[in-house]
Design a protein around this nucleic acid. Structure first.
Lengths: 201, 201
DNA sequence: CTCCGCAACTAAACGGCGTTCAACTACGGC
DNA sequence: GCCGTAGTTGAACGCCGTTTAGTTGCGGAG
């Protein structure tokens, strides 16, 4: 058998990424493999390598969708006049999205690329744009502080929340604390806000 | 060949864990395998399974040493009268230890146990005791606040710093920010202290 | 319309992984 | 001196990511 006409090149590429997304969402990144994926789409593993450089390539495309979805979740976050409250809403949107797509979010940070392969720049940019939204809230809380400071706070709160979430979804939050994830995230946001309010100029 | 008398049971167990520690420290947890380990000690892979339940068992014993070493690093941290300064010293001790044992620290949080296997309780206790030390500093900053609040802050600062460190050592800190790890950790500590100082009772 | 180059695809293979197991050997106790 | 058994091996199982030789059928040139 060879040279089937079941799908065009573009169709097959979409099928691969769609199916990869489903599989990862369902069973997690650890259960994901070239063989399970190819089985699921009715092709052999070798075929994947004619359309994608390697597995990393495929996972990266799935990850890009996950990031896009998160950006959308931010867009859809509840709006508030008070920037501190707004930050909470963003945190809730973040949590909501992640609890919905737990396995996909894990794939973003747990998938092991072979070392030496650089993260694609749009990856970084996608996260940076989320952080910019958060930083904007900080800026409104203390307009007198330089934007750079607000940006730092945005990064810190993002990293902190990411930390807690990733500990939680890898089942290791219990290593560090005995609290509910939502409670912890709210604490973190409030704490960053408090600290930012009292920052020296 | 069978039944060599090269090592007693205890000797072999120590040899295994010692060598595992060296290998992980040198090449990272990803390069670590039953075969490389057994090759390094001059036995075959099967032998490992007569002395340890599985690889997880071995890695867990290495991890326990890593945690013990960190506790020692905390003990050896510089002392300060001001608890806020003391917190910085602890952070520095933490950073210093981790940069020395980067791969071993990664193994603690990156090694994938097969799901369903519980983390041993002393594991949690070892981390909890570090957090207690940190919480103690917070308590001194605001003795009027309940110990539970100080404990929460200890957990939060620990998780936050862990986050940044683990992002950094997996090469993903650049995903979230463009700053030096040490600077970021100091910022985090100061921020937690500031927020704690201004906490409402 | 025929033929051919080439893209697409498969099956098998390579070298890795964690883990298990039958076989064998040498030690300790009788 | 013999035997049960603990210790060890090497091969095996079923996975993994990736590569490759070989085959098939499509699209374009003549």
């Amino acid at each position: 058998m060879a040279r089937r006409a079941d799908h065009t090149r573009a169709e097959l590429a979409k099928l691969v990424v769609d199916t990869a997304e489903e599989l990862i969402a369902e069973d997690g990144i650890d259960a994901f493999s070239a063989r399970t994926l190819s089985r699921a789409i009715g092709y052999t593993a070798g075929t994947l390598y004619h359309h994608f450089k390697d597995l990393d390539d495929i996972v990266t495309q799935v990850n890009s969708r996950t990031l896009a979805g998160l950006a959308q979740a931010f867009d859809g976050a509840e709006q508030a006049a008070d920037p501190a409250v707004q930050l909470r809403y963003y945190a809730d949107a973040f949590l909501g999205y992640i609890s919905l797509k737990r396995n996909l979010w894990n794939a973003l940070f747990e998938f092991r690329r072979k070392q030496g392969v650089a993260v694609p720049p749009w990856y970084i940019e996608a996260i940076a744009s989320l952080i910019r939204i958060v930083a904007e809230c900080f800026q409104q809380i203390r307009p007198d502080l330089p934007p750079e400071t607000a940006r730092l706070s945005g990064q810190l709160v993002f990293a902190s929340i990411h930390s807690v979430v990733s500990l939680e979804s890898s089942g290791r939050l219990g290593l560090v604390m005995d609290r509910d994830i939502q409670q912890v995230v709210h604490e973190l946001v409030d704490m960053h806000v408090t600290a930012f309010r009292h920052r020296s100029a």
